[in-house]
């Protein structure tokens, strides 16, 4: 089976519980790093990282600038910063203008991750009420990566997964438990 180096995930409205369910469905000791952009208010603290960390399945933390991406970890983009991936598999943060009215923007993460991890990257779009992430999905596919959208019928908000699907570049449309199941099948714990 094909090996993957990283999984990037974009979520917005309703994302907190979608992320919780996804991570809860993973086997303890899941190895492939998750890198997550969840749209949040610019003034929010790092509650989301704590909340997901407490599930006890992965070490979940806010991504720090220049930090190296490590297996068994999930990283959340800090509120009010864009999160970018460098060639040496470290994070960069920027405060440039919002993209798709969002900072952090899913497209910014996905596009920079695509160029670095190429065909060893999985991109996942979950629930959300905007179009962020659709361009990122196109980038991931253009580098040979694998793309998944949450089933709009079971997403709390279907606009974002529908926009991703409308690009024609989504490989699989799945419910959250199917996504977790697929990821488990990839990771050698």
């Amino acid at each position: 089976m094909k090996a993957y180096d990283a999984i990037v995930i974009g979520s917005s409205a309703g994302g907190m519980y979608a992320l919780k369910n996804l991570i809860q469905g993973l086997k303890p000791g899941f190895r492939i790093p998750l890198i997550i952009v969840q749209h949040l208010s610019p003034h929010s603290d790092n509650y989301l990282a704590h909340f997901l960390d407490q599930l006890g399945i992965l070490r979940v933390k806010e991504a720090d600038e220049r930090e190296s991406i490590k297996p068994g970890h999930a990283y959340i983009a800090p509120p009010n910063f864009h999160l970018l991936i460098e060639n040496d598999h470290t994070f960069s943060l920027t405060v440039e203008e919002k993209v798709n009215y969002a900072r952090p923007s899913i497209d910014v993460l996905f596009e920079t991750a695509a160029g670095v991890f190429r065909d060893r990257l999985i991109g996942i779009i979950l629930t959300g009420a905007n179009h962020d992430g659709a361009n990122g999905i196109k980038s991931i596919r253009s580098f040979g990566g694998f793309t998944i959208a949450q089933n709009p019928a079971t997403a709390e908000s279907d606009i974002m997964p529908k926009a991703a699907i409308a690009t024609g570049k989504i490989d699989k449309i799945w419910d959250i438990n199917e996504i977790s199941g697929f990821l488990n099948s990839l990771s050698n714990t």
Binding site: T94, T112, V116
Partner: peptide, 9 residues
């Protein structure tokens, strides 16, 4: 400067 940023811009 950070390459990912510079390249993107």
């Amino acid at each position: 400067y950070n390459k990912a940023h510079v390249k993107r811009r």
